[in-house]
């Protein structure tokens, strides 16, 4: 197999003359509050220097280490930001409940990922698990036996460094990689795939989650503690009908979602994408009966997986109602307009 001895790398335009690319990214995305902390830039950074410092994405020692290659700018979904909104295109709108796995609602994210691994479409899936203090941790899922841990499924409502692990997974994989993420992570993966053939070939399945907002771990935890919720005692968190429900070992605590707006990250307040428009398949709880997951199939690969699940009878399918999503889609778009209006004032 031959290779090229001479090649050219297209470099993007510098947003700030005579400064590093990352300085431009910082000025245009991070400092303006657009950054969603999807960490796509950290994923691609060749020297692995980009990380989260004080709840902000930063490259602390960039004067010494930055190679100034511009990759971070090329992949950032919020640089040259074109907001997505609405339902997006889809092939099928349905609701389902897994017979094998239990999850937040129907356990369909786990089901789709495990089925894709069983099909041989992918050989590892990136999952967000948590430790006993609900700190998010990224797991590489190879087979269903790893799920016995029990902390993999379930919503965490905090940012996870999924994409930092993505490059490792992509370089290790033989068949392909599956990713689960919020709409911003999905956008980051899509931009990575657009820019780099390596990701285009190897990331086969992107599962998007319905998302109104996501919180920084420390802020969410101090907020919850103010409400009298101890993270060690927490079993499950959920948002239903405008209320945040925290199920604990010894009871439940409920409060209005509106109260959470005081810790809402700025990156989320500018996001209008509720249904992860760019994913292969979007999964969420809104739009179907309780106990079922809403599944929005958008891509070819996801269609194959759903067909496989149907064929094997791993899940029970029900009726989904796209109309139920409109409220939250509009809510998110509306929040964006409020935010941009505030900025203009």
């Amino acid at each position: 197999m031959g290779g090229l001895l001479e090649w050219k790398v297209r470099a993007p335009d510098k947003p700030m003359k005579d400064r590093l690319y990352f300085d431009g990214l910082k000025a245009n995305v991070i400092d303006t509050g657009l950054c969603s902390r999807c960490l796509t830039c950290a994923c691609i950074c060749p020297v692995d220097g980009i990380r989260v410092v004080d709840d902000k994405v930063d490259f602390p020692d960039r004067e010494e280490r930055c190679r100034d290659c511009g990759a971070c700018i090329r992949v950032c979904p919020r640089f040259d930001y074109r907001p997505k909104y609405g339902m997006g295109d889809y092939l099928e709108f349905t609701a389902a409940r897994s017979k094998r796995f239990s999850g937040q609602d129907g356990g369909m994210v786990t089901e789709i990922m495990i089925s894709a691994i069983e099909m041989g479409m992918i050989d590892r899936g990136l999952f967000v698990g948590r430790d006993e203090r609900w700190r998010p941790q990224v797991f590489h899922l190879h087979d269903s036996s790893q799920l016995e841990v029990g902390t993999l499924s379930g919503t965490k409502y905090t940012f996870a460094t999924v994409l930092k692990e993505l490059k490792k997974a992509v370089l290790l994989t033989r068949n392909g990689v599956g990713v689960v993420g919020t709409p911003c992570i999905v956008s980051g993966v899509r931009k990575l795939q657009m820019e780099f053939p390596l990701f285009r070939d190897r990331v086969r399945l992107v599962i998007g989650l319905f998302c109104t907002e996501n919180f920084h771990y420390d802020e969410l935890m101090s907020f919850l503690e103010k409400k009298g919720i101890k993270p060690e005692m927490l079993i499950k968190t959920d948002i239903t009908k405008g209320r945040f429900i925290a199920t604990m070992v010894d009871g439940e605590v409920k409060f209005k979602v509106k109260e959470l707006e005081e810790i809402l990250p700025s990156g989320c307040s500018v996001c209008t994408d509720f249904t992860a428009v760019e994913s292969d398949v979007s999964v969420g709880s809104v739009g179907s009966e309780p106990g079922f997951s809403t599944v929005v199939v958008r891509g070819k690969s996801a269609e194959e997986v759903i067909a496989y699940i149907r064929e094997k009878g791993y899940a029970e399918f029900g009726e989904g109602d796209p109309g139920q999503l409109d409220f939250l889609i509009d809510y998110k778009v509306g929040r964006f307009y409020v935010k941009t209006k505030d900025d203009k004032d």
Binding site: A11, P46, R67
Partner: peptide, 16 residues
């Protein structure tokens, strides 16, 4: 053997 580039489009141009 010699080094060569098999996927020039995926190169980030980091020059490491």
């Amino acid at each position: 053997r010699i080094a060569s580039c098999i996927d020039p489009e995926s190169c980030t141009g980091c020059r490491i």
